[in-house]
């Protein structure tokens, strides 16, 4: 099932630029950019460090339609400085989220592709991420769902990993990665035996889309193509009711996280977690296509 036809041109989400993702994700000709390149200047914080910078500072914001619904969008460009958040980049996101609180679109789609704080503007980036965190929660409290779409080459790491998990729901591709510290950082600090960042398969078993889906940290899996991200996002939004922030909901999440902490204590590889979840042949998970994995998850205990 889902066997890819040879010679069919697929548009990989992982490889596409942020602009190409938006064009392919949204309804045709519906995208309208806020603060477009022709009205913007590259960040002076980068110029002072002798770095050219980009007109959009690595993030594109605007409005468009998804399957007919009015949405606001944020798309980080992973190819520019790892999609990392600096002052202008962060303020564009905060501004977009504030606009969502005012205009009440059907949703905000947050196409995350970022290593987190831009070290060249470390303080500005950290503070901006804190402001984004609060703005995401304010947007949700205003009744506007925020969907995170993770499948770019930089994944969602550092503060952007936290932001992603503050969203109403996370959609990932198998190629997407979601975590806090990057494997390279852990390897540098704790040693290669703790985390071998060159072991691609291991990195995906710890941070990748399939693992996050099986453990419930991402709501839905998409194929590595814009049309499928579009379909899955539209499907999630149909009939979505954004919950009011409540003690009951956070109690339930606390129970889920605490139970799992105990249940999977000491495990260090996705294979072990999947086995503990009841997957009969965990070694097959990396080879499975999306639909088979979705079926597998449905069949797991609980």
């Amino acid at each position: 099932m889902n066997a890819r036809q040879p010679f069919t041109l697929r548009r990989s989400w992982f490889e596409a630029t942020a602009r190409a993702r938006l064009q392919a994700l949204l309804d045709p000709a519906s995208f309208r950019e806020f603060l477009p390149p022709e009205t913007s200047e590259p960040s002076p914080h980068l110029a002072v460090l002798d770095i050219p910078g980009a007109f959009d500072d690595g993030v594109i914001i605007g409005a468009g339609r998804l399957d007919g619904r009015e949405v606001l969008v944020i798309a980080q460009e992973g190819q520019f400085m790892g999609g990392a958040v600096g002052e202008i980049h962060g303020a564009k996101i905060v501004g977009l989220l504030k606009r969502a609180q005012r205009d009440k679109p059907a949703a905000v789609l947050f196409l995350a592709d970022s290593g987190g704080v831009r070290l060249h503007e470390a303080n500005a980036g950290l503070i901006a991420i804190s402001e984004i965190m609060r703005a995401v929660l304010d947007t949700r409290a205003a009744g506007v769902p925020v969907l995170a779409l993770v499948g770019g080459s930089c994944g969602a790491f550092g503060g952007m990993g936290i932001v992603t998990r503050l969203c109403s729901a996370v959609i990932m591709s198998e190629e997407g990665r979601l975590a806090l510290s990057g494997p390279e950082v852990i390897e540098t600090v704790a040693g290669v035996e703790e985390f071998d960042s060159k072991d691609r398969a291991l990195v995906w078993r710890v941070t990748g889309g399939k693992h996050r889906y099986l453990t419930g940290d991402c709501a839905a899996l998409a194929e590595d193509e814009a049309a499928d991200f579009s379909r899955v996002a539209a499907q999630l939004l149909a009939g979505w009711q954004e919950d009011v922030p409540s003690l009951a909901a956070l109690r339930a999440e606390q129970a889920r996280l605490s139970t799992r902490r105990t249940r999977f204590a000491g495990l260090r590889d996705g294979l072990d977690v999947w086995a503990a979840l009841g997957v009969a042949e965990p070694g097959q998970v990396p080879l499975m296509d999306r639909d088979s994995l979705v079926d597998l998850k449905k069949g797991l205990p609980q």
């Binding site: 932001v163 998990r165 806090l180 510290s181 852990i186 703790e194 003690l247 999977f264």
Partner: peptide, 27 residues
Amino acid sequence: LSRAEELLCLNGSLAHLARCVDLARRQ
């Protein structure tokens, strides 16, 4: 900084803590 922490989505637990602070504010 450890693989075991990341395996269980440490960013998710930090996000949960942030949401709890945020809920306290709203209440």
